[in-house]
Design a protein around this nucleic acid. Sequence first.
DNA 1: CATTTATTTGCAGTATTTTGCGGTTATTAG
DNA 2: CTAATAACCGCAAAATACTGCAAATAAATG
Lengths: 249, 249
Amino acid sequence: MLKEERHQFILNEVGIHNRILLTDIADRLNVSVDTIRRDIKELHSAKQLKKVHGGAVSLGFNNYNPTGKKIYSLEKKSQIAEKALGLIKDEQVILLSGGTTNLELARKLPPKIKLTCFTPSLPIAVQLLNKDNIEVIFIGGRLSKDSQITIGGSAINMLSEIKVDICFLGTNSIHPMEGLTEFDWEIVQMKKAMIHSSRKVVSPCISEKLGSTQRYKICGVEEVDVMITELEPWDMKLDAFKNLNIQIL
Amino acid sequence: MLKEERHQFILNEVGIHNRILLTDIADRLNVSVDTIRRDIKELHSAKQLKKVHGGAVSLGFNNYNPTGKKIYSLEKKSQIAEKALGLIKDEQVILLSGGTTNLELARKLPPKIKLTCFTPSLPIAVQLLNKDNIEVIFIGGRLSKDSQITIGGSAINMLSEIKVDICFLGTNSIHPMEGLTEFDWEIVQMKKAMIHSSRKVVSPCISEKLGSTQRYKICGVEEVDVMITELEPWDMKLDAFKNLNIQIL
DNA sequence: CATTTATTTGCAGTATTTTGCGGTTATTAG
DNA sequence: CTAATAACCGCAAAATACTGCAAATAAATG
């Protein structure tokens, strides 16, 4: 990989997220932290970004906390994605539904891991294109403007032809009795098809969504193998799910 | 192999990938790295690309811009896209292949026009998502990291099931005798399938590509209904195409 | 056609750049 | 303060760049 490319990558990341972690970039580009440190140093003296302890921030990024530790604070979705990473093994075939949590997961996938990844989500596909060792297969179909995933017969048809190791099913509502529910009928159909195409179903879910329900049912909780939240395992909010034959992370 | 051919090849690669590795090019063209190094040096002083340690990058590459596209030769592409717009009518079903010219066309599509638009290109799909009146249908399949379009059997299969009014076929090489050619075999297959799925084939093509040929053949010029360049209709460079039963814009 | 002239290409040796690593110093959070 | 983490420094290995040169190839000339 050319130095120029790394610089470009770093500037892109800074442009998108306003801040980057040195270790994170080094990990994702599969080079040593020293290399990234030097890159950031160069970009800093070229006034392309601002170097800070632990990483770098975008130049116009004002709400930067001078203590520097701010950039280490992890979002809930990021925590969930981290947990999800642990379920993925080299050479597996996975399926990522849409949603920002799965997008975060896609972003965090280490560049060295070899995967085949199916997805109907446009932003996730874009994100995965950066990863050399991940083969991306896009589920074709009609694109929903809201959710930015493909839906409809064609997509469901393509899903019916595959069987993946794990499906990460972005979840908006999960309820111990009512199971997984959705507001949009078309997306319900997609998610049903995804579950059907997977040997193992993982449901990453922000704790706020626990116990909520929406209009249409996707499946019962028993069809989900693993539920991942950002909570600690002993958190009270998880109690309702604890005797439901579902692994909780 | 002629030096000029190598230069063309290098520029082509830089155009597609935004960057090249010295060793990679030397390997693929079966010449020493020194030769390629000298080529790159020449192209660098001719301001056709930017030489960097280990290879070269495209000129607009380092200027970070959030849309991720290149500014270079955008003017011509924009002119071509303007002409192409005139061919599109309300309520039509169109097919956009990949490439920056088509991306420009997608960007320029007026928001009021009602269209159904098929595409295998990730950046184009992203662009079209912003347009409320355009229904986007994504051709699924394996994503090629280089070209950012889907390729392979699944994509070709999906193409075989449709028949659109117009296909805008991004064209890298067009030659009055040799027809349309491509470097990448998989993309050739995709483009063949796209032609087959369309009642009318339009070939937007930067004038620099006129008369050039590459390794694999997509189709003869007779299969193209309209060719669009940024040139004025009386330009000499178009003469070779003028008695070929093809409309020139 | 033979010979000269110019260009191109590969190679060897040397210089430069890049990169990762160990050891040390500086910064940060608790 | 202390432990953990990050930054810095210098070094050595690897990769890449440059230089001069000779062989090969092409072009030009008489």
